[in-house]
Design a protein around this nucleic acid. Structure first.
Lengths: 219, 219
DNA sequence: CCGCTATGTAATCGTCGATTACATTTCGTG
DNA sequence: CACGAAATGTAATCGACGATTACATAGCGG
């Protein structure tokens, strides 16, 4: 076995013209984000070095694209958040009900479903432990849009006299705490301790959302 | 200033008989747990080495008491959980109301107050990322007791006809998701993004709990 | 064609968790 | 009381990681 040799592309072996790689590696930034996303999805620790390994690149290379690990994680979070938002909006598009509470319910369900099917991505987005959250304007904006979405639903519901309480902010926070808490209980492995079986979780999510809606609806 | 010298007890300078230190350092295990707790409370990363430094001991010493970092974190979690449980029970002792829903409410408030005043400890207990949760029987038992406590309250409330729904498990999970989610939103720094001011949080916690109670109460 | 900039490599540092060999203290038992 | 075993701590070392630096190379534009 030859002793590990310098692994630069051979001097005059030009790349095939077919693939237009603009630079040495060809958008290493993108490849690193994807590698990190995959790492997260596998439940593994996301390290800059491992992402570099998967991109077949030296350990120092990523730092040309991200000043530090935090910045890579922030980029990963932005990508995950984008997917999250797309899925939520798709689910809402499939529920064009006129009833604002029905849409509120659909939102909660889509939120929980995505969180439970993409636990690692959800964690990166929401936990605020992988990077400094103030840094990403895109993340903040994306999140604010989703918040505004539910605000509108609730305001509409209030206008139509569907709610018994007029404190919309309180309802808003409580609703978010409910779905966020449920998602995190799943993420943090609380459900086995609570006697909730694996296959039972998604049904329980529906039940919990229904309970909340019934709790705020006019009686 | 003298150059940091080996800090072993002087050869024949026997310790005062008053304090019975059984071994070299005198319950290093205890000191390490306290150091780690303090580290967490400061918001710093909890590393075995730093705990060892604070205990003025070599980096390898802690491994005589904990097989690995996880085990140290588990011990820290047990200590934190113990304090958590003590505080909850004290709060309930101060609320000897006959009304089970009032006690349920007091439980939720005590839960949230502790979580918001000891964020790092709450995180270690609940996040399941600092150690493998299956390992600590004490933690599991402690938690199960608190769960049983709220179960009894709810069962009592149902007996007295205070609830409109009979699905106690669903109510239980929803209630837990609500307080857990609220605590984690605070922990994960979500509230600034939600326009909730720092001083407003505790009041909002009360409001959210009241909303939930009102939502499950007989109408 | 030449030089500038973007990008990647190699080498290095300090920290961490973990393991091992060795030293010292404590304790129980004969 | 002495001595050996067990408990406890130290020192040295390993490999992985994040990060920085000096250097090399590819591609673009004047």
């Amino acid at each position: 076995m030859p002793k590990l040799v310098r692994q630069t592309p051979k001097p005059r072996a030009r790349r095939q013209a077919s693939e237009a790689r603009p630079y040495h590696h060809g958008d290493l930034r993108r490849v690193l984000i994807d590698a990190a996303l995959q790492l997260a999805a596998e439940g593994a620790e996301v390290s800059v070095r491992e992402a570099a390994r998967r991109a077949a690149v030296s350990p120092g290379a990523p730092f040309r694209h991200f000043p530090n690990r935090d910045a890579l994680m922030a980029a990963v979070a932005e990508e995950a958040q984008r997917r999250f938002r797309v899925e939520i909006e798709a689910a809402l598009a499939e529920t064009p009900s006129a009833d604002p509470l029905a849409r509120f319910c659909a939102f909660g369900l889509a939120y929980l479903r995505w969180a439970m099917r993409n636990p690692a991505h959800f964690e990166i987005i929401s936990s605020g432990r992988y990077f400094t959250h103030g840094s990403s304007a895109e993340l903040t904006r994306d999140n604010a849009e989703l918040v505004a979405l539910t605000e509108r639903m609730l305001a509409e519901a209030a206008e139509q006299g569907l709610l018994w309480s007029g404190d919309l902010k309180r309802i808003q926070i409580a609703g978010r705490a409910l779905v966020y808490g449920f998602a995190r209980m799943n993420l943090d492995g609380h459900f086995p301790r609570w006697g909730v079986e694996e296959g039972e979780i998604e049904r329980m999510a529906e039940g919990v959302i229904d309970l909340f809606i019934a709790g705020i609806a006019k009686r």
